[in-house]
């Protein structure tokens, strides 16, 4: 047998494996890697209406963005939105998960209630909240009315709009975070609690010394996912505020969408997409660096 033949035979595993991996590799190439490189490429160009690169401008698009008050505004809104939503969502979900982890009669019902928002789409949730925020017939202003407090133009007041969108987003994300955290809590070994109970340790002592440290990998995971999700927010903005009033809720993905598909400025839109990519890359790397040190794996 020739040498080539032997090499061919020896690599049979590799070739068969390639067959199994091929669908994923082709799809990732076409719909993830190629468009990512293309986005980076386009960010250095001015484009025509159909999105073809027309004039190479180097870093002009980025220089323009960093100097534009519109983009600065969008970055600020995105940052604030992340700050408003992520910590509160996780704290609430953790509280609910701790409650739902007690072994009581009918606990399954409560678990279903807490996780319900995961089954409700962003579009449907946004429409429900749009009604609740309605200044004249929405329940929030009715409630304020009953309490004799001044009415708030929830989604129409630049001071309140981002906060209102954040409140609705917290609600939308609670179901998923709850489900993940509850799963994490249930993976904790019962024996750990039994030995501590003999010493007469109280609930909060056990929470601090056993539950939270053992839950840290799950917490770490859900914090990373929530951060990334928050930077990708789109649907609720499109339905609730359209980025307004006076751009106070123009989060980065909405800003990319508008720049690309309404203004047809694909160059600057791509530059924003590259910035979004970099932010998420940094968040992920930071999380992993911090996570390595802080997280306690079983």
């Amino acid at each position: 047998m020739t040498r080539i033949g032997r090499v061919w035979r020896k690599s049979v595993d590799g070739r068969t494996a390639a067959l199994y991996l091929l669908p994923s590799i082709i799809l990732f190439s076409v719909f993830v890697f190629y468009p990512m490189f293309r986005t980076i490429y386009l960010s250095f160009f001015l484009t025509d209406q159909t999105g073809n690169a027309a004039i190479m401008v180097g870093f002009e698009n980025f220089v323009y963005l960093l100097g534009s008050s519109e983009f600065q505004n969008s970055m600020k809104a995105t940052g604030l939105f992340v700050l408003y939503t992520v910590p509160i969502t996780i704290i609430l979900a953790l509280f609910f998960a701790l409650l739902a982890n007690e072994k009581l009669k009918g606990i399954g019902f409560f678990r279903t209630m807490y996780s319900s928002t995961m089954g409700i789409s962003v579009a449907a949730s946004s429409v429900i909240w749009l009604f609740m925020f309605n200044p004249s017939i929405g329940m929030f202003n009715r409630l304020l009315g009953v309490l004799n407090l001044p009415q708030i133009q929830w989604l129409l007041d630049p001071e309140w709009a981002l906060l209102s969108v954040s409140i609705s987003t917290i609600w939308m994300n609670i179901g998923f975070s709850f489900l993940i955290l509850l799963g994490g809590l249930q993976n904790i070994d019962e024996h750990l609690y039994e030995s501590s109970r003999i010493d007469g340790a109280g609930y909060f002592y056990r929470l601090r010394r056993i539950t939270l440290p053992m839950l840290s990998p799950t917490l770490f995971f859900i914090i990373t996912i929530s951060l990334i999700n928050a930077f990708q927010t789109f649907g609720q903005i499109d339905i609730l505020t359209k980025g307004g009033p006076s751009q106070s809720t123009n989060l980065i993905v909405y800003s990319i969408y508008r720049e690309a598909f309404i203004n047809y400025q694909f160059g600057t839109a791509s530059a924003q997409a590259v910035i979004l990519f970099l932010i998420i890359l940094i968040v992920t790397i930071l999380q992993f660096k911090l996570g390595e040190r802080k997280v306690h794996y079983q």
Binding site: V30, P35, A273
Partner: peptide, 16 residues
């Protein structure tokens, strides 16, 4: 691929 947000690739994807 998990670190590439889908929204960062949507413009070329629409063209594709």
């Amino acid at each position: 691929t998990m670190m590439i947000p889908w929204e960062a690739t949507m413009i070329p994807n629409v063209f594709t």
